[in-house]
Design a protein around this nucleic acid. Structure first.
Length: 520
RNA sequence: CGGGGCGUAGCUUAGCUUGGUAGAGCGCGUGGUUUGGGACCACGAGGUCGGAGGUUCAAAUCCUCUCGCCCCGACCA
């Protein structure tokens, strides 16, 4: 009899151990899991406006942290913020042919001002504009118009400006954070005296971005150039950062473009050089977007929800008072506040530690799970028993949800920054390990096709990854691989160690391996 | 924009084939019992079944149109 009961309990336990906070699991249905995490973590929700989303405080808090950190890095490298119009006169936009071709299909266009009631009392657009206005999909042309006025002499250069803004791209298939009609970003736009200086800027920003995603978002990336067919419309060269998320697809985490003199010519950005001759400026542009929030979800999230790197988490430590017994409640709450104050006095990664005491009158278990789903790096429980020992129970989000460690309160206050650092490091190491395990050096066409073909076409399992393979440099091959496998060249490494070989598709000579993958 | 799927309460959904104007679980509210935990009991609020038209005595259910969402494709940060 007691034996039976014992077995039942074990069954029950293993059942609850298997239960995950997010349904479905990542391995069951990755796209659906992604959406459920965003909802469960209260990052964002679809709005009534097709393709647009509402970014909720927790999601926006992550974006604000990204802004704060990137903004500091921009300032430290001599950039300043400014703001340019949302609307771009159609004629300005039309100035750069390749640019137009690239963006025309996704432009929202304002053609009228004012609303007027018709006979039925329905509101209709009233006066047509003499010239339609394009809602910026990117701001090269409108910013270029200002730069043309500001630049007269080489002494006016360089111009190093960034803007934080929203942009609109009328995409066909929106997905929360990854591809929405309106999104938030920063766009840097610079003008330089020489080609090499502008190329240097493009590279400087690429390195800055790489540091940012590595150190703050715990995201390892491959960097390098885009192929002709993948580069920014109007750019001479596009540098990119490519990360691998947990379904092994590539996602672009940021771009930095060397625009040559294309846009300077289009906008009339001209200056008198040191020889007294008129010359077009050399421009760059570069950006990172709210897509990074989605990247973070897919990079670190698990079957219990979001997992946030401490450096980007809006709240780094949440304190959960165990106030089960009325008679100890006040003492527990007081201890929590005291602990919070102590923690806020310490610093982690240049800022005071972000601590929240969750005093809400919500069941303890529910409360705990909410914070798990939101991905808070550290959860700290304080109950009457801990009070007696002057200790706390801490749970790290990078470890199993049930795992807890007891620690003297003093020690925890002293060690909190170190523990946060450890969580941050673990997430990076884990992501890098995953990326490396799913990156293959491939030397034959057969292996290449095998790598990117699922075993079960009906319900494709997670497969593929990054393939490092030689390529003859032709657009035709890219096109064919894209058609056959939906695989594209994500990045052509810039580096230092060219490794000559033979194109695995044609046998022609190749200077270096390039990175192939399916992508977002 | 092409192919597929789906719209019933905040969420997940039953009912639809064989018409008779809605049921559940979770969540929510109140009261109580609990308390190192996604607890339990009782009571309760919440749905013009995506929208419009049609067939019918009668439509969530049948027909037509329409809107939206999701997945795959083309495109993109």
């Amino acid at each position: 009899m007691s034996h039976m009961r014992h077995i039942c309990r074990i069954t029950e336990m293993s059942h609850s151990t298997l239960k995950t906070a997010i349904t479905p699991r990542r391995d069951e249905d990755f796209p659906e899991w992604y959406q459920q995490v965003i909802r469960a973590a209260e990052l964002a929700e679809p709005s009534d406006v097709r393709g647009c989303m509402v970014i909720r405080p927790w999601g926006y808090g992550i974006w604000e942290n990204m802004q704060r950190q990137l903004d500091g890095m921009f300032r430290a490298t001599g950039h300043r913020n400014a703001y340019f119009p949302l609307f771009i006169p159609l004629s300005y936009f039309a100035r750069e042919a390749e640019h137009v071709e690239g963006f025309a299909k996704e432009c929202a266009v304002v053609t009228h001002t004012r609303l007027e009631a018709d006979a039925d009392g329905k509101l209709k657009p009233g006066s047509p504009l003499s010239e339609p206005l394009v809602v910026r999909p990117t701001s090269e042309t409108i910013i270029g118009a200002s730069y043309a006025k500001w630049v007269q002499s080489y002494r006016d250069l360089p111009i190093l400006i960034n803007q934080w803004a929203n942009v609109v791209r009328w995409e066909m298939r929106p997905r929360l954070f990854l591809r929405t009609t309106e999104f938030l970003w920063q766009e840097g736009h610079t003008v330089h005296e020489t080609e090499s200086e502008a190329r240097g800027e493009t590279r400087l920003i690429l390195d800055l971005y790489e540091r940012f995603v590595r150190d703050h978002l715990a995201i390892p990336v491959f960097t390098g150039a885009k192929s002709e067919s993948e580069k920014f419309p109007g750019a001479v060269e596009t540098l990119t950062l490519e990360a691998m998320v947990q379904d092994r697809k590539a996602i672009q985490a940021g771009t930095s473009h060397f625009l040559g003199q294309n846009f300077a010519r289009a906008s009339g950005i001209q200056f008198q050089n040191r020889e007294g001759k008129q010359e077009f400026g050399w421009t760059t542009s570069w950006g990172m977007t709210t897509r990074l929030v989605g990247t973070l979800v897919m990079m670190h999230g698990d079957d219990d929800g979001l997992v946030l790197p401490p450096r980007i988490a809006p709240t780094q430590i949440v304190i959960l008072p165990i106030t089960a017994k009325e008679e100890t409640r006040a003492a527990v709450l007081e201890a929590c506040d005291k602990l919070a104050m102590g923690l806020r006095d310490s610093r982690y990664a240049d800022f005071p530690v972000e601590v929240l005491v969750d005093r809400r009158d919500v069941g303890g278990g529910v409360k705990n799970w909410e914070w798990i789903k939101k991905g808070v790096p550290l959860r700290v429980e304080i109950g009457p028993r801990d009070l007696e020992k002057n200790a706390v129970e801490i749970s790290r989000r990078d470890q199993a949800v049930k795992s807890k460690e007891s620690m003297p309160m003093e020690e925890f206050v002293a060690r909190a920054p170190e523990i946060l650092r450890s969580v941050q490091d673990t997430l990076y190491a884990r992501a890098k390990k995953f990326r490396d395990e799913n990156t293959r050096v491939i030397d034959s066409k057969e292996d290449f096709y095998g790598f990117f073909t699922s075993k079960n076409p009906e319900k494709p399992e997670l497969h593929g990854g990054f393939a490092l393979a030689h390529w003859n440099g032709s657009r035709e091959i890219e096109e064919r691989i894209k058609n056959d496998l939906k695989v594209t060249i994500r990045v052509i490494p810039l580096d230092d160690s060219p490794e000559p070989g033979k194109c695995i598709f044609t046998g022609e000579p190749s200077q270096r391996r390039v990175v192939w993958a399916k992508s977002y």
